[in-house]
Design a protein around this nucleic acid. Structure first.
Lengths: 209, 209
DNA sequence: GACTGTGAAGCCATTCACAGCT
DNA sequence: AGCTGTGAATGGCTTCACAGTC
């Protein structure tokens, strides 16, 4: 049940629309136009309508979109009606920060396991989750139904732990390590590369006017 | 001096090529083909050659590319010959982790200031940089020649501190807050949105197979 | 023979512009 | 009159395929 081929850029924008709609709902707004959504996100209104058109017709011509209704539909489209269990691999600076980060817990993402090779870190309590030894990775993945693995280990270990996640059946990986990872086609991979982001800024700073 | 219009995707890949070349050089490899670079990054060899072709001819037909030479050229292209001074705005979990993160210090990015509104955090020493009060932001930007501001404050404050960075003349912003930021056209902005990344994974998990 | 550099073709995403509802 | 939904046009990135060079 793949909804044909949806551009990645569209999925990213839908995520952002859903956040803006969530803010609008909190603010008590009931109806919104594609133009208003577009302005709040910094894209064109045609873009907003095209993005939504991949999945159906959610608005009323002449009127706009009902905020709660559209938000409900986006939540379904993005698969956020169910809770996703996460594991963080690597309890270093970044891994710990992510474990303690509130943003994850909201909206149905639940950190269920944190593992680390370093025995000095094992046993630490990070926002209610106790750091386990790396050896227990496979067991934890099965026991706790982990669907997303978050890689925050050093580059040199990143591929190895990713292979273990994949072998244990984890279908999605979010990679924070500065390392190109290989995963089989059925596994979803996204990269959050801090160094690359800085280099892109550096490029733009060097070439703009 | 804008090198015409370079696709963002190209710049991102160039950053990754530069990292792979850096690894190759460490490994003592002297020559590499576009096919080998492509395989190590997971793109096509034509893509690698096209990306490089935006900036010149760096290879030798029939032979390939000299690793150190190409790396040198990419370093220049990406603007990494000079050091960029960074400021981190927000010394919470994420801001502190970034401050302590080794990856930044390598490759010419230097954290020169960390600020926070919370007086309890002011005075903390994070890897040799002392947290300053937010009031001092503008002074620090000027005194320390800050070129990139890293936003790790809560969404509600993100636009406000971004405006202050922009007004103080900071030309580039890396935004970690879950908030759409507005900056004038001459300011470069990149977003690293953890929640969006998870939502995209959720979408893919829900729609694959 | 091997591998780069590149015009041309193909493909995909965005923008345009308007028909269709309310 | 206002705003959505969408085919058509546009623009841009990627892939193809091969001429050019070592």
């Amino acid at each position: 049940m793949k909804a044909y081929k949806i551009p990645e850029a569209t999925v990213i924008r839908l995520s952002i629309y859903s956040r803006q709609l969530s803010n609008l709902r909190k603010a008590g707004v009931e109806t919104v136009s594609s133009e208003e959504i577009a302005n709040s996100v910094g894209v064109s209104s045609a873009q907003v309508r095209k993005d939504l058109a991949y999945f159906g017709e959610f608005g009323t011509r002449g009127v706009g979109y009902r905020v709660d209704e559209l938000l409900g539909n986006l939540t379904k489209i993005l698969g956020l009606t169910k809770e996703w269990n996460l594991a963080i691999i690597g309890a270093g600076k970044l891994g710990s920060a992510l474990a303690l980060y509130e943003g994850f817990r909201q909206r149905g993402f639940s950190i269920r396991a944190i593992v680390d090779v370093d025995h000095k870190r094992v046993g630490l309590d990070l926002a209610g989750v106790v750091v386990d030894p790396l050896d227990r990775l496979e067991t934890l993945i099965k026991e706790r139904d982990i669907k997303i693995g978050i890689i925050t280990v050093p580059a040199a270990e990143a591929q190895r732990v990713t292979d273990r996640l994949v072998d244990a059946g984890v279908p999605a990986v979010l990679n924070f390590s500065p390392q190109v990872l290989r995963v089989p086609p059925h596994v979803v991979l996204r990269n959050v590369d801090l160094a690359v982001n800085l280099k892109v800024l550096s490029f733009n700073l060097s070439h703009n006017s």
